[in-house]
């Protein structure tokens, strides 16, 4: 049994952000999606933009993001979140518009929309959750699946016959419309803090009309990687980060 501790004389230093609803997420225990949701909600709280933020939910595990964010949300067809966000931002330039997409949505089905939205330099924030697998549909191979990684559609491990994993940050960086590209991770506490700083900058860029901000969050998928949450976080260090190096790729 746990111990009872008096709260007298103590002040709250952290509590659940207001921009999250009371709904319990459907994410598996230890999933990085929850952490990414929380960071976005904390930033919305800190900037005080809960009433002026519009999010675009993708298709994938985070398809129910509109149930979890206490914000105006729009659901886009599979992969088309950046196109929908383009329309939202052009029609309502005073709103903060962000998309929240997984790797299957952004790099697979929505690769075209993403590249062109970035090439046009739309003044939106793109949050890209890279967990190297299709989570919702049962762990199929995604464009970002690592070579040798076993998934339900590559049971002997991915080979280069199916192509190499796409490094989206490096690809996006070459486009002139993009102003800010950073890859972060959420598997350790210092990295979560860095991820928050990157997201904060990406949202602030919208105030200054600086162009597209692209944040890739390397995340875990304990269920489909068939690991415990702790082992999956370690696997990010061992396998993901050597192929997907963290850092700022572009900041103009």
């Amino acid at each position: 049994m746990g111990i009872e501790v008096s709260l007298e004389g103590k002040e709250i230093v952290y509590k659940r952000p207001k921009a999250l609803t009371d709904a319990v997420t459907h994410y598996c225990p230890g999933c990085g999606h929850g952490t990414a949701h929380r960071l976005i909600a904390e930033i919305v709280d800190e900037l005080g933009i809960q009433g002026t933020t519009v999010g675009v939910a993708p298709v994938g595990c985070s398809v129910f993001a509109y149930n979890y964010f206490d914000l105006d949300m729009q659901q886009a067809a599979h992969g088309r979140a950046c196109a929908v966000a383009t329309a939202l931002k052009r029609l309502m330039p005073d709103k903060y518009v962000f998309t929240y997409q997984g790797d299957g949505d952004l790099a697979g089905i929505g690769g075209n929309e993403t590249l062109h939205a970035c090439n046009r330099g739309e003044n939106i924030t793109i949050v890209f959750i890279n967990n190297a697998i299709y989570g919702m549909t049962g762990g199929q191979m995604a464009p970002t699946t690592l070579i040798g990684q076993k998934t339900t559609t590559s049971p002997y491990g991915r080979t280069t016959n199916e192509g190499n994993p796409i490094r989206m940050c490096e690809l996006i960086t070459t486009l002139p419309g993009v102003r800010y590209v950073e890859r972060v991770a959420v598997n350790t506490a210092p990295r979560v803090r860095k991820a928050k700083a990157a997201l904060l900058k990406a949202f602030k860029n919208q105030q200054e009309n600086k162009g597209t901000s692209f944040i890739e969050i390397v995340s875990n998928c304990p269920s489909n990687w068939k690991m415990t949450p702790l082992a999956s976080n370690k696997w990010i260090d061992d396998a993901m980060i050597p192929y997907f190096p963290l850092g700022v790729f572009k900041d103009q």
């Binding site: 709260l7 103590k10 002040e11 709250i12 230093v13 952290y14 509590k15 659940r16 952000p17 999250l20 319990v24 997420t25 994410y27 225990p29 230890g30 999933c31 990085g32 999606h33 929850g34 952490t35 929380r38 909600a41 350790t188 506490a189 979560v192 803090r193």
Partner: peptide
């Protein structure tokens, strides 16, 4: 910082 479900309230 690590909690994915924001269930922890921290007092100091």
């Amino acid at each position: 910082t690590m909690c994915p479900d924001a269930v922890l309230t921290v007092y100091r």
